[in-house]
Design a protein around this nucleic acid. Sequence first.
DNA 1: GAGGGGCTATGACTGGTATCAAGGCTAAAC
DNA 2: GTTTAGCCTTGATACCAGTCATAGCCCCTC
Lengths: 236, 236
Amino acid sequence: MPNKKYLDVRCEDCQFRRNSLFGALCTEESTRVSDAKSCTVYKKGQVLFHEGTRPLGVFCIYGGKVKVYKLGSDGKEQIIRIARESDVLGYKAMISEDEYPVTAETLEDCTICFLPKSDFLHLVTDSPSFNKRLLQSICHELGVMSNKLTNLAQKSVRERFAMALLMLKDTYGIDGEESEEVEINLTREDLANIVGTATETLIRLLHDFKEEDLIETRGRKIVVKNPRGLAKAARL
Amino acid sequence: MPNKKYLDVRCEDCQFRRNSLFGALCTEESTRVSDAKSCTVYKKGQVLFHEGTRPLGVFCIYGGKVKVYKLGSDGKEQIIRIARESDVLGYKAMISEDEYPVTAETLEDCTICFLPKSDFLHLVTDSPSFNKRLLQSICHELGVMSNKLTNLAQKSVRERFAMALLMLKDTYGIDGEESEEVEINLTREDLANIVGTATETLIRLLHDFKEEDLIETRGRKIVVKNPRGLAKAARL
DNA sequence: GAGGGGCTATGACTGGTATCAAGGCTAAAC
DNA sequence: GTTTAGCCTTGATACCAGTCATAGCCCCTC
């Protein structure tokens, strides 16, 4: 109810549109998407889609953070990314006609638009500019993945944690603005599942970084105080 | 000189075409690609493209194996994949207009076709069926990457090595044929760089797997004797 | 066939991380 | 105001895996 106003936002007026995949749409296409989409408020902890299910459409985040993770054989979550405003989720498996390889779950109350499968796919085939944007974005993402893979394989937990903090600083910061003080709001367990380590190990590193004046904690929240120091700790 | 005959193979007659990305081309498109491409024999250890350089075209493997790796901050290679006959390399960075995030290097003498950038990009924009095939392939690949990431983060070296052996069995086997006895021909160091571990550790595991009758070694070559046992060791 | 270089193998040692076990804090519920 | 549940934190311990050092092996060259 308090968020009801969001439900009326149309893509054409959406402040995030040009940053998102849908930035490549012309006015007419944007209007059609807007007519086809629906917008919903999700509670913290709700699942947008489940690993192993078939895609029915795509999700575009208007407000809030979403964790995208994969379950390992022993049930442990490996967080692949933290998605934020303007991010579009759930289209890759749709295009490749696979089951979802990952699960998407809200980390806080979220406002998220849903565009049905057929509308999205028509966009892919009928809008050359959208098609190009999509292709470029995905290809770029694959390069980023090679990087992540290499870091995970070769860097220590400490280094990976430093990297994760820098990444999260961006995710939790306001787009475009630098210097702003950013509070990262995640459970220790989620943090550990990003870095790929045990919760206890992560907490000990948190302690170390605090002593080294790289970060500051406010309750569960973490503030990056010294990004350059973190970059050094990550050997970047 | 002994391989000269390959140089004359045209895409239309290439036995790998329908398996490759180019399988989506119609006869006329295929002919145009064939006219534009050139075919070269590479010696073992030659580099097709270097991390950090700009793509000039795409490579399509007609014969031989190619390792695709990324260098970590301390210079250690992380092997992202082993490419084989019918695989197409080097197009993703081209599409996303990035520098190559990885290096591609032949593992043995190879026969490889090269298609210049502009010809490939025209295909992407002008052939809807090719465009679709490409998009699907890349989207699928990203799902596979999430999987790799999770395994790397959560599985032990022993489990990862078992998985790598199963994967390599496919890469070194003949497409479609099962049961065939497959020899994996890689240095211990390359194996370690696939698994993400130290060479010594890998050799010790090799020893263990041999004792457990999961594999057999012939000189440097490795033969998978018991795939189901390996799958169990990998907790798949 | 002697030498050398690169790859393979093994042993000893170390250290980074995971695991197990308590205990503490916070915030919401009763 | 007490209780409870869910996180967070800390300590002790074990072990997996990396590093260093050394030696064997194979193949190629001279």
